[in-house]
């Protein structure tokens, strides 16, 4: 046999063995002692790394949970109740009650309701449009429609409908809150999903006086106080000419929807009313 082959095999073998020894030594020398529960918790998490919990990624969140040893204020909004229960069992803790949330868009200033009065010719980004002007519909609180929320969403759960110019949330929403942060006008709110996914909320953020708000948008909240008076459960409050429905007090009785003169209160997934549909009742929209 040609000795050069032999030499090659021996040299390469020695190099390999040497490297393996060094690697082994380095690995044992620099070994990081880590709580094995971190791995277990991290595995239980959805691994979306969305940042909805307030930490950079799922692993950071797992580290934080194991380190503090409690689940107070540490919630994975994406995994929800199920995941939190699993984590609680890993750590031997009590699972906190997690309310299932969803993002809702609190503006209904579609092209139809709030027609364009200007033509925007700048960068197609809400953040930039917001610092430049009031928006094409003229409402300084309304949706700008350039889809910063859509770009922020990692779950394909919010999309701007080209027909209305408004974002719509679908069932993929995990309530991570990325869109809430992305919206320069704070139009998107995290609300409890509600029983059977039924929700009632005010689809307006306009704090201007009624007449001014109405000028820009058909469906603006004009702060007329009718809903507040109508509500028997003290669920609705009015501040700065704007009504807000407390989701925890609302019983979904729908009285407010009926009295609202501008149809700015939206009911989602509620069954059709028993009374025959009236011509003046608000159109029902499913999210």
């Amino acid at each position: 046999m040609d000795s050069s082959i032999l030499y090659s095999i021996i040299t390469l073998g020695l190099i390999g063995a040497g490297s393996a020894a060094i690697l082994y030594w380095v690995a044992s020398k620099f070994k990081v002692e880590e709580d094995p529960r971190i791995d277990a918790v991290a595995e239980a998490l959805p691994q979306a790394n969305c940042g909805g919990c307030g930490y950079a990624g799922c692993r950071n969140f797992a580290e934080a949970i194991v380190k503090t040893g409690s689940l107070d204020n540490l919630i994975c909004p994406v995994g929800g109740d199920e995941v939190m229960k699993r984590i609680a069992s890993i750590l031997g803790l009590e699972a906190p009650a997690v309310e299932s949330m969803i993002a809702v868009v609190r503006c209904n200033g579609s092209f139809q309701n709030s027609p364009s009065k200007f033509q925007y010719d700048g960068v197609k980004s809400c953040a930039f449009a917001h610092i430049t002007f009031t928006g094409e519909g003229g409402c300084p609180y309304g949706c700008l429609g350039h889809g910063d929320c859509e770009r922020a969403c990692t779950f394909d759960a919010i999309h701007v409908n080209p027909a209305t110019g408004l974002p719509e949330v679908n069932d993929k929403c995990t309530a991570c809150g990325a869109c809430v942060k992305a919206c320069p006008r704070n139009i998107i709110e995290m609300r409890p999903r509600g029983k059977k996914d039924r929700r009632i909320y005010v689809t307006c953020m306009n704090k201007e006086k009624g007449a001014v708000a109405r000028k820009n948008c058909e469906v603006a909240c004009i702060g007329c106080n009718k809903c507040v008076k109508e509500c028997r459960f003290d669920a609705i409050t009015l501040s700065n000419n704007l009504a807000y429905i407390d989701p925890h007090k609302c019983t979904l009785c729908r009285k407010c929807v009926e009295v609202c003169p501008t149809n700015c209160i939206l009911e989602v997934n509620l069954p059709p009313r028993k009374r025959a549909a009236q011509s003046d009742s608000p159109a029902e929209i499913t999210a």
Partner: peptide, 10 residues
């Protein structure tokens, strides 16, 4: 009272 400024905000 409030009135428009250049950017349309009041």
């Amino acid at each position: 009272d409030d009135y428009f400024d250049v950017s349309g905000y009041r």
